[in-house]
Amino acid sequence: MSVRVENLAVDLGTFHLQNINLTLKEGDFFALMGPTGAGKSVLLEALVGLVPLISGEIFIDERKITNLAPEKRGISIVYQDYALFPHLTVLDNIRYGLRFNPFKRGEVAVDELISLLELGHLLKRYPATLSGGEQQRVALARALAVSPDILLLDEPLSALDPNFRQDLRAHLKTLHQASGATFLMVTHDFSEALSLAQRAAVMNQGVLEQVGAIEEIFCRPTTTMVADFVGMKNLFKVKFSGSTAQAAGLEIKVGKESRAQGYIAIRPEDLILSKEPLISSVQNSFAGSVVAIRSHGFFYEIDVAVNSLIFTAVITNHAFFDLEPTVGDGFFVSFKATAVHLL
């Protein structure tokens, strides 16, 4: 189902939200990003109906739910710390919501979730005896067992060990496709957002700085805060074949093999600009032309267009005066295969 938030404002003293306008499309996987203390979790709790609103309206499929009790909204929430009921077994945790949601598919949904999330061997255990990854899978199963229209995820992966994180990320993707629910995930990890979400918003100090498609936020930040937050420039959508990535007619060596499609990112300081091509077996070197030059005091940012890709390089003042680039000049952009981050 779609969600629409209009002019929402919350004041909790330490946390406040202002002028929040947001639309989630049906079946969306939406990432809500921002630094710690930005108010992301408060927005989730406002959607569930757990914090009082000063103003604003919330709609689900054009049905106003602003004044509805949390239990009547059809919105499930999964917390970072899992919040499993410690006095109930895994199975009782998962089935918890069923008695309040007497729909026919309940038991079937539970069985499906248990096999999808590989929880079959844990059903009789108590949460205190589970690993972090297992607990988070139980929390997901519990939230989805009631077939919610919308699932809110509050940093679902950040408390997990890196290897569990990969695993759960894959599970999230499967669950999103299988459940058909609209997912809203809070995260501060960009690669997480990129690999899961289609659309995203960046929040800062209780205000939404930018809302849009995830690549757009990455490539075209509209405020300096978003640009800083996003950090990594040179993000390209690519097709992989073997250990090369293809984009805009370029064959970029990435050093390792990857799945069929995805993103690559290169830090601006890892790009080398030169007037002559650099010849080396591990390096990528492409001819392009300078399209923009920005001075930042101690360093310069140079945008170089190669076919339809814009590479942004950072060079020192010293290098700048050696190269003396001007807009329109031809330059080679070079970088090592190991400097390419696969997302």
């Binding site: 757990l50 009790a69 949390p70 919040a83 009921f85 309040f100 519990r142 919610p148």
Partner: peptide
């Protein structure tokens, strides 16, 4: 008892009273 447990219970469809009986009180 963490309020988050109550929040989760509410979001799963339990009323305030059902949450108290099923989660808060036993804990």
């Amino acid at each position: 008892v963490s309020p988050r447990l109550e929040h989760v219970s509410r979001s799963l469809g339990a009323s305030m009273f059902a949450t108290f009986v099923g989660v808060t009180f036993p804990l």
